[in-house]
């Protein structure tokens, strides 16, 4: 046996030896499987309309139904040669690739590799943890996520911002408690990734969000944020996010209550400026500011 591939088996045998599969002497396709296809070889003009009437649902067709041949090695009567011991369903593609790739040991390549590894691990760190949300509830889980990474949050009916001190300590309930509802999230200068934004889903009433200095934010992140906070956000700060383009700004109309939007430089380019003007036109309550704002976090 040379190779087994999908459901298709092909083997190299001395010519003249009988094969286990049945075949007919005629030219017509005759395949040995349980249910012979009724009109397999007839012309098929618009079968979809015809089948649709019988409530045929494509999503309910199982993968096995597509298999009309038995792989050679699964057939009865096929002997197992001792070489089969060395056969695995998994192949060693990645090992081969690693062997064939040249190892670059120049300092710049190592630096790049290290940066990539660090980024990958940071992305894994920011992934959604179902346990965290189950123990804390969405609001507190999001708060823990932000504060532990150097951000700050503020809750309704709590006058002070919560922020970690120099040693990384902060004061937040460690289990679910009633009455904690996020009002403001400050992610200034946090290494927040797209994958980390998944922790901010289903927050009830966040009115204030600052992404000032989150360099990894791009249009796709804006897309996600506009969905997550579409019902509540009033203040949004997108300064020092060089990867957000006019196209990302253009979809901020989805934030229905947005009133204040901070941007780096309103006049960055003509398209950018025009997008901002159009945004102000369709959102009469919106004010776009590009002067620096100062605020203090206690």
């Amino acid at each position: 046996m040379l190779k087994l591939k999908n459901s298709l088996s092909f083997i190299r045998l001395p010519v003249g030896r009988e094969c286990a599969c049945k075949y007919s002497s005629s030219n017509k396709l005759e395949i040995t499987f349980d249910k012979p296809p009724a009109n397999a070889l007839q012309s098929r003009e618009g079968p979809h309309t015809q089948v649709a009437e019988e409530k045929y649902e494509p999503n309910k067709v199982a993968t096995e139904e597509l298999r009309w041949r038995t792989p050679w090695h699964q057939k009865e009567g096929q002997y197992h040669s001792f070489l089969r011991v060395f056969y695995t369903e998994k192949n060693r593609r990645s090992t081969l690739q690693r062997l064939q790739t040249q190892i670059d040991l120049s300092p710049s390549a190592i630096k790049k590799w290290w940066a990539k590894k660090k980024e990958e691990s940071e992305i894994v760190q920011q992934a959604y943890l179902p346990e965290r949300n189950q123990i804390l509830g969405n609001e507190l889980a999001a708060a823990h996520f932000i504060v532990a990474r150097g951000g700050a949050v503020k809750f309704f009916n709590h006058d002070e911002w919560v922020k970690a001190d120099e040693r990384g300590k902060y004061d937040l309930p460690r289990f679910y408690e009633e009455g904690w509802e996020l009002q403001a999230i400050d992610c200034a200068d946090m290494p927040l990734y797209y994958e980390g934004l998944v922790n901010l889903y289903d927050l009830r009433n966040v009115e204030w969000l600052s992404l000032n200095g989150c360099e990894n934010m791009d249009d796709w992140c804006v897309d996600r944020i506009t969905n997550q906070f579409s019902h509540s956000l009033i203040y949004l700060d997108l300064r020092n996010c060089p990867n957000i383009s006019a196209r990302g700004i253009g979809c901020l109309y989805k934030l229905q209550k947005l009133k204040i939007l901070y941007l780096d430089d309103f006049m960055k380019s003509t398209v950018y400026e025009y997008t901002c003007l159009l945004l102000e036109e369709i959102m009469p309550n919106l004010e776009i500011r590009s002067n620096p704002v100062t605020f203090e976090i206690k």
């Binding site: 009109n39 397999a40 139904e65 298999r67």
Partner: peptide, 12 residues
Amino acid sequence: DRFIVEKPMFEL
């Protein structure tokens, strides 16, 4: 193979 076993995968 879906043409052989007659299982069209159309979009509804």
